[in-house]
């Protein structure tokens, strides 16, 4: 029955799995969105895969917050700034 439904939907896991990732990056066309939704509703494996990607995305954001704290405190080296300043004063 499962494979029969899959045939009707004409979308295998292999077709769907790049779309699961892609749906995190942009809005899929309506037809792809519907087929993806139907496939995921009936396919436990793709549900797991979708959940895994969501976990990766969430955890990456945690890393991003930590990185942002470090970056916010990063400044250019004073000697590099001094070098550019001198060059600008000379050339302008």
């Amino acid at each position: 029955m499962f494979s029969g439904m899959m045939k009707i939907l004409k979308m295998s896991c292999e077709d769907v799995y790049p779309l699961i990732s892609e749906s995190q990056d942009h809005t899929l066309p309506f037809s792809s969105r519907m087929r993806l939704k139907i496939h995921i509703t009936i396919c436990g494996l793709c549900q797991i895969y979708k959940n895994q990607l969501a976990v990766i995305c969430r955890v990456a954001k945690v890393i991003g917050k930590e990185d942002a704290k470090i970056l916010a405190e990063s400044n250019m080296k004073p000697e590099a700034k001094e070098k550019i300043q001198q060059w600008i004063e000379k050339k302008r």
Binding site: S12, C13, C46, I48, Y49
Partner: peptide, 12 residues
């Protein structure tokens, strides 16, 4: 060959 996952992804 029919496009279904051979190995079940681990349920995290």
């Amino acid at each position: 060959s029919s496009g279904h996952m051979i190995q079940k992804p681990g349920d995290w």
